[in-house]
Structure formats: structure tokens, C-alpha cells
Computed example of a mutant assay.
Amino acid sequence: MYGLVQATRGAGGMDARLERRLRLFAILVVVSVVASVAFAFARGYTSLAGIAVGVAYGVLLTIPIAGISLFVLQGPMRPWLGGLSFTAGLMVRSAIFAAIIVPTLYFQLGSVIAGVPVDPAHKGFWVNIAFAVVFVILANLIIGIANIIGPRALLNFVSGRYHAPIEENRFVLFVDIAGSTGLAERLGGVGIHRLLDRTFRLLTLAVVDYRGEVLDYVGDEVIVTWREDGGAIECRPLRCFMAMRDELARASDQLQREFGAVPRIRGALHFGPVIIGEIGDVKRAIVFNGDVMNTAARLEELSRNVDGGFLVSRAAMERFNSPPPFAVRDLGRLPIRGRNDGIDVVGIGTPAPV
């Protein structure tokens, strides 16, 4: 099974992380250039030379700042930075960005590149610094908030997509940490929390690869969803679950050394109409409701007694636009709590340890 996952994983979007970063990089560069030009206009620099200086500063500052943020801080430094508090992480990022902003503005590199004479008196230095610092802090806050609630959730809140509840067809994947109760008894409260945090971070890599959306973490479970059109492509939810197991397998040595255990996962996938909408006041959230959510959760419970530890409803299988990436076996109709007629399901063809 492990080799099969390795062979098929790339077809489901191994470049999704890079694609996401490049898309965000392009957006940040464009927004920064527009903001820099607007700032130049606000200060009365409306000539072509003034616009050129604004564009130059926007590019000079954003390319290294966005590049470091997305490809270093969100890359090799992500585990270390993720271990810091929100405020500490914000301070680290701000300090790095200040090291780029201050010399760029002090030496007036934007003017130099645009071919405009520099101001030897540095009259506008502190005004420019203030604007750059405010812009960077706001960008950092947005990135930090997006990391807390999820970038898609932030975009949905801003756009008001689910301000009034709507119905969408969704794939819903429930993933559970097997044997978490025993692990909690052995590791203690703090230890199991650290293990769950590390495990969920690893599982999230697969979610990003296969363009899913983390809906919530509930105890030792993570819930992932896809819209119908995105999830149907190349069986992304199925590939995502197998990639999750792959991530845990690759990190097994490190997890064993640190925690004395390697988490194993079970899961279940279902598909159907879900009611999505904002709810709450003091702590507003976007929630998913409906029979699909309940059925997916109960299928996950059933997966504990099935070889392979993974169940897929027939309703989900019929929505994919290509054959599954691994062998499956028809398990027929299983009785399920809350449904008198049961539900048709399939399982993984080759059992995996659970």
C-alpha cells in the first residue's frame, strides 16, 4: 500500500502547496505595487517619475518580503515558527521584514532604480517607514488570522459567501487517530496534546496537496471537505487520505523518538448536500450541518471494525470523475445508527494496519 501511495500521489496535486504560494505571492506583489502607487499619489507625486518610484518600491519590498514569508517562514522555518505564540511569531516576522524595509528606504533604492534623483536630506524617510511598517503589520495580521481560522474561511467571511445559509454538495472526510485513548493514558494530557498537534500538522500537508479545506479539529479527529467540482477531480479525497498515511509513515522515526509512538489513522468519506452558514455572535463561525455530516461521523465509527480502516459511501464513489487510485472492495449495505435502510459502502482493497 505504501508503494502504491508513493506512485499515485503526484496525480492528485503534489504541486498544490507551490501553486498556492505562487498565487499568493503574485497577489501580494500586485497589492503592494498598487498601494505604493496610491501612497505616491497621496503625497502629490503624480508624474510618471513618481509613479515609477512607487512601482519600484512596491516590487523591491514585496518580492523579498513575500518570498521569505511564503517560501522560508512557511517552508523550512514553519515548524519552528509554528511553535511560537501568535505575538512572538508576529514579532519575528516583523523583525525580518524591518531588516529589508529600513535599508531599502534609507538608501532610496526605489528612486535609484527609477532613475529619479535621491533626496540627500532624507526628508520623507520616516513617513515612508511609517507607511511600510503599517502595511507590513496589516499583512502579517491577515496572514496570522488566516493561519488561525483558515484562508478559505477568512475569504468566506470577508466575501460574505455564507452570511445567509446556503446548501452545497460536499465531500466530507472524517479522520480519526486510532487508539488515542491509550496514547493519552501513556503520554499524559500535555504529551497527547503535543502528539495530536504534530499529527494534525502532518495531515494538513496532505489536505493542502489535494486542495481540501480543514473544517474543524474535534478532539482526536480532523474534518476535511471539498466542494463537489473540486473533490471529484482524480478522486482527491481518497488520495488525500492515503497521502495522510504516507505523511505519518515518513515521519514515523521522528515520532517514535519523540513520543514513543506512531499515530495511525482511520477514516470515512461521504458525499451529499450540506447546509453551510455563519453562526454565533461573540465567536462567529462558519458551520456545516445536515445528515451528510452525521452519516460521515457514523461511518468513521464503523471504520474501526473494517479491514483497512477506511470506508467510502457509494454516494461519494459515484461522484468521482475517474477510477479510484487503489483497489477497493464492495462491502454492500451496512447498518448505521440513525438510518433504517443502512448505507452502501466500499472499503480499501488491501488492508492497512489500524
Results as ranks from 00 to 15, higher is better:
G3F: 09
V5C: 04
T8M: 02
G12Q: 02
G13I: 08
M14S: 14
D15Q: 01
A16I: 02
R20M: 03
L24R: 08
I27F: 15
V34S: 15
V37A: 12
F39G: 06
A42N: 07
L48P: 11
A49N: 04
A56V: 04
A56G: 05
G82A: 06
G83Y: 07
G83E: 05
G89M: 00
L90W: 01
S94W: 15
A98T: 15
Y106H: 06
G115R: 11
P117S: 00
V118T: 14
I129Q: 13
F131Q: 02
A132V: 07
V136I: 06
I137H: 12
N140S: 09
I142F: 14
I145D: 13
R152Q: 10
L155W: 14
F157M: 09
G160N: 00
Y162F: 13
P165S: 03
N169P: 04
R170S: 07
L183G: 04
A184P: 10
R198W: 12
F200A: 03
D209A: 06
V222E: 02
V222T: 00
V224R: 06
W226T: 03
G230P: 04
A232I: 06
R239T: 03
S252C: 14
I265K: 07
H270M: 09
F271Q: 04
G272N: 02
V274Q: 01
E278R: 12
V287Y: 14
F288N: 03
T295L: 14
S303D: 05
L311E: 03
V328G: 09
P335W: 12
N340C: 10
I348T: 01
G349P: 12
